[in-house]
Design a protein around this nucleic acid. Structure first.
Lengths: 198, 198
DNA sequence: CGGTTCCTTGAGGATGATCAACGAGGGTGG
DNA sequence: CCACCCTCGTTGATCATCCTCAAGGAACCG
């Protein structure tokens, strides 16, 4: 949970429903609100000139998203879309910034959150700039495992389609599939019944 | 200037000289200090398995670098090297975090700094994941111009070698050169006497 | 002038993208 | 229970392009 719901509502936040595939904000929109997910999930992505999507991140229940531009008077560098029917709480930028100032512990947690985002983006960039598909996919799997690090031991099922992995890694579906079967033969991943484990 | 030097010294910071090409920290080192450049410049970079470097950023006089892991008890995801003989002020992580708590305006500026880094990294990732060399280079040039945005009007000279541009974009030198001459023919950049203008 | 460092060009090869087609599973309605 | 559809996974053939390797030229500096 990012900011306590009581606090958000006290300061005048409102919850809004979004249908699956509804756009929450567009690239180049000015950032005017702080968003926090109460129910559902949100994908942040960019589209390049030839229509290929790149997934910058997926955010789940309890997470906030799209905060950085709020601190900068900037536009969004990516789009946000509801991946499923979702309920999202919104509060204006000004109020959000005030909350950040009023509550030192929230402030501190945001600093850590931003630092973590940078850390992860550094790793992502490093992985993605590397041409080799296997390296990119391994980095993606590693990252997923770390995020859901309940159990370091043992294989974890990867709950993404090949297409989604392609969008995360900047590869094409076919390349993802071919690389994964290769990795399977080399025992680097496990595939049972089309389901992927790492 | 990131943190006022008086404050840093009051809290027990020390300045240290680094020679050109001296490593300041290595990837996988635990982050123990806050660094701020008094004189010189620092390059943050990663090296991938086949020895190719990727430049994550270059920091100049007055800037801090390598802060995100301080907030996270994390290791560095990249290396830092002095690009020239430099003087860098160091202060322990604990003291740095204390300063952040004690001075609200410094806190605020750091929040903005981290937000800006995320914003830029989002753009970088977006550019780098795109296969087309021209797009990657254009994004790099755009970014440089924005950072040094004294004069939006008119061409700016790009003070980097082709190799450095290659390291920023994840391309090979030859590809950078060929793409640049192509862009020159299409009047997208200007090249005079091997010097590049955008 | 000799030695670096950087820039440039060409030829060839490796590999990911593209295009086209098909297979497999799951859900729905008749 | 079956027929249909829709999404997801898979495979093969071909293409485009960036990388690689090799060589030489240009600028700069002591």
């Amino acid at each position: 949970m990012q900011i306590d719901l009581d606090i958000l509502f006290t300061w005048g936040a409102v919850a809004k429903k979004y249908h699956k595939d509804e756009i929450i904000f567009y690239e180049d929109d000015l950032a005017l609100f702080y968003f926090q997910i109460i129910e559902g999930s949100v994908k942040i992505f960019c589209t390049n000139e030839d229509g290929k999507d790149f997934t910058q991140g997926i955010f789940k229940k309890g997470s906030s998203f799209g905060e950085p531009p709020l601190f900068l008077d900037e536009i969004y560098p990516s789009n946000a879309i509801a991946q499923e029917d979702s309920v999202i709480i919104k509060i204006s930028k000004d109020k959000f910034l005030t909350i950040i100032e009023e509550y030192p512990d929230i402030n501190k947690r945001f600093m850590q959150l931003l630092a973590l985002r940078i850390f992860n983006k550094t790793l992502t960039t490093k992985a993605v700039v590397n041409s080799k598909p296997e390296y990119r996919i391994k980095a993606f799997l590693e990252h997923f495992k770390k995020e859901n690090a309940n159990e370091i031991k043992g294989k974890v099922q990867i709950p993404y389609t090949r297409q989604e992995i392609a969008n995360f890694t900047g590869l094409r579906v076919e390349t993802v599939i071919r690389t994964l079967t290769q990795m399977k033969n080399e025992k680097k991943v496990e595939i049972t019944n089309h389901k992927l484990f790492y």
